[in-house]
Structures are given as structure tokens and as C-alpha cells.
Simulated assay, not measured.
Amino acid sequence: MENVLARWRRELRGTFSANSPTVPQWERDLEKGDDGGYFAPESAAWAVHGSMTPVVAGIQALLLQALHPGAMAGVHDHSDYASDPLSRLAGTIRWIFTVTYGDTAAAQAASSKVRRIHTHISGTYQANPGTPAAYTANDPELLRWVHLAFTEAFLACHQALGRPIPGGADAYVADWAVAGHLMGVPDPPMTMAGLDRQLAGFRQELRCDERVQETVEFLKRPPLPRSQQLGYKVLFATAVATLDPRYRTLLGLHAPHVGPVQLPVRWAAKVVLGVVHLGLGKTGPSEQSARARRCRLGLDRPAHG
């Protein structure tokens, strides 16, 4: 029994770290640095990203981001997500946690690294209504869409599954605007009203085509270990159920239901996330490193103090 449990925990941690056998060094390195970072332990960003809800939000963000044909073209033409999804997931997690928990220099360096990678990503796509358009991954409006989709998804999933956010939804939108600025997004939204307004500005550009449908099918059934497949089905269903109905309809997806009765996937997701929490541990290594750095700098007291 212990061997089965140990293997399950190893596989679970491997899913989020590209199968690293130990805590990745970059997470330990977040203990280094000369300031407290952009966010403090009581911030909205720590509350959301330190919970389990990002596991669902990540799925929903990918569904949303795929709806923009320019963003989808970049993924289709340049990403190896289908052949090596865990590496892409690990890279995204590294950026999110470095911006959230690292000092300001680390957050800036991580964002600059992503932007440098983006300089090699360009091409063309068919914009609505079928006119050819050029894209680059560092195009400010494509970066804006990715930022908006991320913020919308992480906020919606946390509001559905997580605890109250310090300062409310506006505080999270304002916090994560910092990441938008670091990535070169001009004037990212600072409030829920601003987020909704900027999302509305993209609606005429969104569509679900064959490429998007392929991405949706992949996200429905990613190549996970057998021990994670049932739990993932619940989490995918919850990502769909908590998605804004307008985007859900555009994607051709439906909230799970039997006849007219919607299934209680949120309750089931909380159970799955609770199990994942047990497997990963109470506090993640990135947060532990950030707290150690802040204590070293005299910004916070040790937990036992």
C-alpha cells in the first residue's frame, strides 16, 4: 500500500514538474533575492495562486486562449504541447510562481525570458472574417488576450471553488496586472469592470475552428498517468462548468448534466483538489522559499514566532 501511495505522489508531482524527481532548483532559488517581491503573503495573488484552484483554472485558461485565431496559430505552428505537454505545463507554472513568489528581479528576469522566446514565434493566420493577418507572439494585443484569458479563468475558478479573496475580485485583477505589465501588455485592466470591458473588445475576433477543436479534444484527454485520469475528467468538467456561457457555447461545450439537471461537478472538484492537496503537501516549495526570503529580509516573522 505504501508503495502504491508513494508512486501516486511521485506521478502527481511529476505532472507539475515535467517529471522532475525532486523539487526543481528554480523553486528553491526563490529563497534568494533582495526584496519581498511584487506581492506579499496577504495579497490576492498569493491567495489565488497558493490554493488548488489554479489546477482547474489552467485548463480553463487554455480553452479560452485557444479561441483567438492569432494565439491559436502561435500554439499550432510553434508549440510542442501535444508531444511534450508536461514540459509546457512546467514552464508556465515556473513563470507564474516566479512572478508571484520571487523577488522583483527574478520576476522581471522570468518575464524577459518568455518575451525573448516569443521573438522567434511569428507567422500568419486567417482573421475574422477570413482575411490574412500576420502575428508575432509579442504583439501587444495577442499578449493582452492571453493575459485577459488567464485573469478571467483564474478568477472565475477561484470564485467557484476557493476561499474568499483578500480585497475581492478587483484586488486580484489589479495584482495580476503587474504580470501584464511585465509581459508588455499595455494598460492591463485593474478592476473587474475593466476586465469585462477589455474581454468584450475581443468577441468579434474569436472563433472555434478545426484547430481549436483539436486543442479541446487534447485537453479532454491529455496523456496523464492512469492514476490521474478519473480526477482529471472531473477537473475538466469543472473548468467547462465554470466557464462563461458565451465562451462555452462558442467552444461547443456543455456543462455536465443529466436531462435538465446539472451535475454537482464543483463539489466533486473540491474533493479531487483536496486529494491533490494531500499529495502535493500543505504549502508548495515556491511559497516556502518566498516566506524564507521574506523572513531573512525582516519583512515577516517566522511562522512559529
Rank of each mutant, 00 (worst) to 15 (best):
M1A: 13
N3Y: 06
L5M: 15
A6E: 14
R10Y: 10
E11Q: 15
L12V: 15
F16Q: 14
S17V: 03
S17R: 10
P21Q: 06
P24I: 03
R28I: 01
D29P: 00
G36I: 11
Y38N: 15
F39T: 05
A40Y: 09
P41D: 11
E42D: 14
S43T: 06
A44G: 03
A45H: 04
A47Q: 09
G50I: 04
S51K: 09
S51D: 13
T53Y: 10
T53S: 14
A57Q: 06
G58S: 05
Q65L: 03
L67K: 02
P69S: 04
G70I: 06
M72D: 07
Y81L: 10
A82H: 07
P85A: 04
S87E: 12
R88P: 04
L89I: 07
A90W: 06
G91E: 12
T92W: 13
R94N: 09
W95R: 13
W95S: 04
Y101Q: 01
D103C: 11
D103T: 08
T104D: 09
A106V: 08
Q108C: 07
A109M: 10
S112T: 12
V114Y: 03
V114I: 12
I117S: 10
I117K: 07
H118T: 12
I121S: 05
G123F: 04
Q126H: 12
Q126A: 15
P129R: 12
T131D: 08
A134N: 09
Y135Q: 07
T136R: 13
D139P: 00
D139C: 00
P140A: 02
E141Q: 13
L142P: 08
V146T: 08
F150G: 00
T151Y: 00
E152K: 09
L155E: 05
C157K: 02
P166S: 11
G167M: 06
G168C: 09
D170T: 02
A171K: 11
Y172L: 15
A174T: 12
V178W: 03
G180M: 03
M183S: 01
G184Q: 01
G184L: 00
V185C: 00
P186A: 08
A193P: 11
L195I: 15
D196E: 15
R197T: 15
L199E: 14
L199N: 13
G201P: 13
C208G: 03
V216Q: 03
E217V: 01
R226L: 10
L230F: 14
G231Q: 07
G231A: 05
K233V: 08
A239V: 08
A241K: 02
L250T: 02
H254R: 14
A255R: 15
A255P: 01
H257K: 15
V258C: 00
V261R: 09
R266N: 11
A269Y: 01
V271G: 03
V271C: 05
V275R: 05
G279I: 00
G279R: 01
L280R: 12
G281P: 02
K282N: 04
T283I: 15
T283G: 06
G284Y: 06
G284H: 11
G284Q: 15
S286W: 03
E287S: 07
Q288N: 12
S289A: 15
R293C: 04
R294G: 02
G298M: 06
G298K: 04
L299N: 05
A303C: 02
H304Q: 14
G305M: 07
